[in-house]
Design a protein around this nucleic acid. Structure first.
Length: 625
RNA sequence: GGGCCGGUAGCUCAGCAUGGAUAGAGUGCUGGACUUCUAAUCCAGUGGUCAAGGGAUCGAAGCCCUUCUGGCCCGCCA
């Protein structure tokens, strides 16, 4: 919040000056300065150069001298840099006082750009026939982090998880159980989702090669699942429910949670589709082909894209006919056919609901909104584009359907090698079908063991339970951070050794800074007095730390506006870097009483800021590690 | 063939939306700092024709165009 107050003060005063100079229409930028150029930089002189026909530096000097009269607030000095920038220097004592006091408030870093706007966000949506692999983890972590960030930015976000329980992949494992004799019970200790994915699914799809006739059986199974009511359909729903409950354990372990589960089988049976089909016809958004390669099909008219078949010439609907009703339902464009019931209470104590078609007396719930965000792999961009365009027309432009796309996770050649695939030095796409993937639970287990050893070494006096708690925290944090620290459009090449490092730009590095701060506070044995002599904090490391703490809400705003969770990861990292530099160069506990108090206050501010920032990407802050 | 995305230090990536100051991190390598608030750390050094070319601009890693290159997508499968 606090850096923003500084920015606002400067902007207000600059506006006055620009008005006097008759150049008030300029849209200038005012940003936290690069190190060595004061605290806030303004580019207004560059922009004004043209209309005033003067060199940027001259204008900067003009502005600087007119600004003199405004000094004495949060700004103590203004400078015209030879380059043309106007650089502002904050009154460090005032800024520190402001930042440190505000950082102690619960809502520190909140910024109400959402103003309560409703958002429906879908993420995870893993087919319920296998366990989560590292690629799914990216989806979960991106989605969950985005939810936390958007909520911090003042949006009212509801989280959906779409369960494709009537797809081909479910038919595959069903066939494995019914026709290939796979036991319904995994071997001792094996999670059911791991069993279905690692053994039943892989081995069943393998069989299609040698016994192609199985595919016909699968198609029959698929049809029965979609129609419902048969023994096959009942078995399928029992099976998927069991896989789902195991998958959710992994998601919760990662720190994610949801508001409602949507089942594809229910969308299919809800009769939403005929309703929408009619509307689409009325609105002329689809057409019936009487000629050409799509003869006798209903197709979606997509601008600049190939037409997409929606209803086959035999009258059956394609898979998009499942996605469209769901998208329309999320946007509230159709009457809600569902009832709701509690699925379970999640580890964070939030109730998870699910849709049901069976009437009940539970209150109706509303998960739709005018803005829908769907987190899906970039490989589905084409399809998502078609749906986006369609929904825009369907919703008369008042609704927003956003595909939050992210690049896939591939395996490094070493990691692929360790799974038995020679890629000739190249990275490899994961494949559930081929069993070529890194399982999420297993990677967390590995990380947990690694961090447990590390923590034990450093804290031999801690109890086993405490050590495990810390190890769990750090393991989840490490994986989440790896999945989020780079931009969504960058492919993550996962390597079981390199990606699990605990040093450098990693979650443990950041968490470690927090633990160090905890020890200072623990050993100081004094409660901080927030009416401190903040003028005493004049070491460069102290000042840098204050300033970065003051920027949390700017990071939240950036991340929320750009749907970019990475922004928060970068912010957390630079916060930790700044604290570690402070820690190495400034002694807290040896300071004289007034300085000690001021520094302790700063350490407190750092902790509460980092804790709030890390929470936005689902990372905990153990006080020891 | 069409569409989408990437190409910045040996490697992995920030910076690009909104052009402006010395292009930054991590990692690697070299050297240094633990009787000190936890060395999962810090400090110093090393390392870059920002893929190439052109254009608009006083000014381009960033904007426009072209080319090269890597990945993904393009079924009456889901």
């Amino acid at each position: 919040m606090s850096f923003r107050i500084l920015l606002d003060e400067i902007r207000k005063n600059l506006d006055v000056i620009l008005q006097e100079q008759k150049i008030s229409e300029l849209v200038f930028s005012l940003e936290p300065a690069k190190e060595g150029f004061g605290d806030v930089s303004c580019n207004v002189a560059f922009l004004a150069a043209k209309s005033l026909k003067k060199r940027p530096n001259e204008i900067a000097q003009l502005i600087t001298s007119s600004y003199e009269r405004f000094l004495g607030g949060l700004v103590s000095k203004v400078e015209a840099h030879p380059s043309g920038y106007v650089n502002f220097y904050a009154d460090n004592g005032k800024l520190a006082s402001l930042v440190i006091k505000q950082s102690q408030q619960d809502d520190y870093g909140s910024i109400n750009i959402g103003a309560g706007t409703k958002i429906t966000l879908e993420h995870t949506s893993v087919n319920p026939n296998k366990a989560l692999h590292i690629g799914h983890v990216r989806n979960v972590v991106v989605g969950d982090s985005m939810v936390r960030i958007l909520r911090k930015a003042g949006y009212f976000v509801q989280i959906l998880n779409y369960i494709d329980d009537s797809g081909l992949q479910v038919a595959d494992i069903l066939l494995g159980f019914t026709h290939l004799g796979f036991s319904q019970e995994p071997s001792m200790g094996q999670k059911f989702d791991h069993y279905c994915g690692d053994e039943v699914y892989v081995k069943t799809t393998e069989k299609y090669q040698s016994s192609p006739e199985l595919q016909e059986i699968r198609n029959k199974i698929l049809k029965e699942i979609e129609e419902g009511n048969s023994e096959t359909a009942k078995f399928a729903s029992k099976l998927t429910a069991r896989v789902l409950s195991e998958q959710l354990k992994t998601c919760w372990r990662l720190g994610a949670s949801y508001d409602c589960l949507n089942f594809e089988s229910e969308i299919v049976r809800s009769k939403l589709w005929p309703q929408i089909f009619d509307k689409l016809k009325q609105m002329n958004l689809i057409k019936f082909e009487s000629d050409g390669k799509n003869k006798d099909c209903w197709v979606i008219i997509a601008d600049g894209e190939e037409d997409k078949v929606l209803v086959r010439s035999n009258g059956t609907a394609t898979y998009i006919a499942k996605d469209i009703p769901y998208a329309a339902w999320k946007l509230g464009l159709v009457d809600d056919p569902f009832y709701y019931k509690e699925y379970t209470t999640q580890p964070n104590n939030m109730v998870l609901h699910q849709t049901t078609l069976e009437p009940n007396n539970s209150p109706k719930r509303n998960y739709s909104s005018d803005r829908v965000i769907t987190v899906i792999d970039s490989r589905q961009a084409r399809l998502q584009n078609i749906i986006t365009t369609l929904m825009q027309k369907f919703g008369a432009g008042k609704k927003e359907y956003i595909h939050l796309s992210y690049e896939s996770v591939t395996l490094s050649s070493d990691t692929a090698n360790s799974l038995g695939l020679d890629t000739g030095g190249k990275s490899a796409q994961m494949s559930g079908r081929k069993g070529l993937y890194v399982n999420a639970d297993k990677i967390l287990d590995t990380l947990e063991q690694k961090t447990l050893d590390e923590t034990k070494k450093r804290n031999p006096e801690l109890s086993e339970q405490a050590l495990h708690q810390i190890a769990q925290n750090v393991a989840v944090a490490t994986l989440r951070y790896e999945m989020i620290k780079q931009d969504l459009d960058k492919i993550i090449t996962f390597d079981t050794t390199k990606s699990l490092s605990l040093e450098g730009d990693t979650a443990p590095y950041i968490q470690y800074a927090y633990a160090r701060a905890s020890r200072i506070i623990e050993k100081s044995n004094t409660a901080p007095n927030l009416d401190a002599k903040y003028d005493l904090l004049n070491d460069q490391h102290e000042l840098n730390l204050v300033k970065i703490i003051g920027r949390l809400d700017l990071a939240v705003q950036d991340a929320a506006n750009n749907l970019s969770p990475k922004v928060i990861a970068k912010y957390c990292y630079s916060l930790a870097v700044s604290f570690n530099a402070f820690y190495e160069h400034v002694r807290v506990l040896d300071a004289t009483p007034d300085l000690l108090n001021a520094r302790i206050c700063l350490v407190y501010a750092f902790q509460s800021c980092l804790q709030k920032a890390l929470a936005l990407i689902g990372i905990d802050t153990p006080s020891r590690m």
